[in-house]
Each structure stands twice: as structure tokens, then as C-alpha cells.
């Protein structure tokens, strides 16, 4: 889980630095580096005190400021008498560009507020003209009646049957019983390989298949049988492990 906390609404190091410069009423073209560096570091300390993880980008700017401060201490007159470029120029340019976009952000926000006063309506539902209409729309009423009649007929028939015979619960074979049956068959096979379908009951349906499969899995786990299948959907060969069972 991570969550964002906004503190003092500084969007980043430039945002903080611009705030500090404006607050100190400095000209951005003539930043008093040592003063602003001190304030900047103090602000970062304060953020740390409030248990804010200070992003690496804040520290990068801190390092830049400290470097700048040290460079400001050196005279910039070259041997030939010409002057080196002001070390602050790059930072000033960056801050100016950032400030410019910050103002532009405010400008487009105003534009957005204005635009929000014009409301639009959603598109009409064009589904009947464009996409596939829903299936029931395609069916004519006679087909619909026929389908409903067929449903009622089946239902009545079912109820009549229940009335005559009462409901019959199918006897369900348990995994334990199935395991017994599988074991008997394997023993009778005397080491011969059997296939998965040999254990299925005639007309056993899906339920029987599942029970058989689960039973086999259990027997494999307990070490009573080993199985082999060459590929997907191919016959599963099953072999009985006599020794393991006698050890039990």
C-alpha cells in the first residue's frame, strides 16, 4: 500500500525554490545563492521532521545549490581579463521556464473553468441502427410464442412424471467406494496396464468421471498407483503398485 500526502503543496523542488525566492523578494535574475540555499535546506529539514520522505529530486537541487554557493565564492575574472558566465544563469533559466509553465497551467485552468460552463449532451443511443440489435428483437412474435409453449410443455410433463413416480434420487458413489472399485479392478488386471476409461461406469455421466478422476489422484498421492499420459486428451495409463500397498 502506498498513499500520497501533499505537504505545503510544493509540486517539486523548483516549485519550492521559486516560492522561497518570491517570498524573499529576490529578483530571479539575481538570486542571493547563500541565503536561498540556507532557506531551502531548512525547508527540507522541516519536511524530514514531519516524517516526509524527501524525494531524490529535492536533494539533487540541494546539491546543485550548494555547488553554486561554493562557485559564487570564487572570482570569475579569467587570466585574460574577460569574465566567466554567471554560474547562476543555468538555474535562472530553468526556474524561468518552470515559472512560465506554472503560469500557463493557471491560464489553462481558467480556460477549463470557462469551458465547464458549456454543457453537452451524451450521444443518443444509436445501437438499433449501428450494432447488432439484441437477439430478442430479431425473433418474431410467433417464434417467441412457440418457444414459450415448448417450455411450458416440458415443465408440465416433468410435473406429471414426479406426480406418478415421485422424485428419484440418483445414488451417488463416494470417492472411498470408487477407490475400492478401482483397486479391485487393478488387482484383477495383475500388473497389466489399464486405461482411465476402464474404471468408468456405463452411463455414469460427468459425475462418475469426476469421482473416478479424484479417486485416482488420491491413489497416486498415497502411492497405490502410477499413471502416464503421453499428451493432452490422450489415454491415461494406470499401473498398480502392489508393493506399496502391502507395506501399508
Amino acid at each position: 500500500m502506498s498513499y500520497k500526502i501533499k505537504l505545503n503543496i510544493f509540486e517539486g523542488p523548483f516549485d519550492l525554490l521559486v516560492y522561497l525566492i518570491e517570498n524573499a523578494e529576490m529578483n530571479i535574475y539575481d538570486i542571493r545563492v547563500s541565503e536561498i540555499t540556507e532557506q531551502y535546506l531548512k525547508q527540507i529539514e522541516r519536511m524530514k521532521e514531519h516524517d516526509v520522505v524527501v524525494g531524490a529530486e529535492f536533494l539533487i537541487l540541494a546539491a546543485t545549490l550548494i555547488e553554486l554557493k561554493s562557485r559564487m565564492l570564487l572570482p570569475r575574472i579569467k587570466v585574460d581579463g574577460t569574465e566567466e558566465e554567471d554560474p547562476r544563469t543555468e538555474l535562472t533559466q530553468k526556474l524561468l521556464e518552470y515559472t512560465r509553465f506554472k503560469r500557463l497551467a493557471a491560464a489553462i485552468e481558467e480556460q477549463m473553468d470557462y469551458a465547464a460552463m458549456k454543457l453537452t449532451k451524451p450521444q443518443e443511443d444509436l445501437q438499433p441502427f449501428t450494432g447488432e440489435p439484441d437477439e430478442y428483437l430479431k425473433m418474431d412474435i410467433d417464434q417467441f410464442i412457440a418457444a414459450f409453449k415448448a417450455f411450458i410443455y416440458r415443465r408440465q410433463k416433468n410435473e406429471e412424471m414426479v406426480a406418478i413416480r415421485g422424485s428419484i434420487e440418483r445414488e451417488k458413489m463416494t470417492v472411498a467406494a470408487k477407490k475400492g472399485a478401482i483397486r479391485r479392478l487393478l488387482r484383477k488386471a495383475k500388473g497389466k496396464i489399464l486405461h482411465f476409461r476402464d474404471f468408468l461406469l456405463p452411463n455414469g455421466g460427468r459425475y462418475d468421471k469426476v469421482v473416478t478422476f479424484v479417486s485416482l489422484l488420491e491413489m497416486i498421492k498415497q502411492g497405490f498407483a502410477s499413471v502416464k499420459q503421453d499428451g493432452n486428451f490422450q489415454d491415461i495409463e494406470i499401473r498398480y503398485k502392489e508393493s506399496e500397498e502391502s507395506a501399508q
Binding site: 503543496i9 509540486e11 509553465f101 506554472k102 500557463l104 497551467a105 493557471a106 491560464a107 489553462i108 485552468e109
Partner: peptide, 12 residues
């Protein structure tokens, strides 16, 4: 604010 800043930069 962050979204507006980024959007302004992209737009211009």
C-alpha cells in the same frame, strides 16, 4: 496542480 502543469507543458 501537477496534472495542470504537465498538461500545460504538453499543450504548449
Amino acid at each position: 496542480q501537477a496534472a495542470l502543469e504537465v498538461l500545460a507543458i504538453v499543450a504548449y
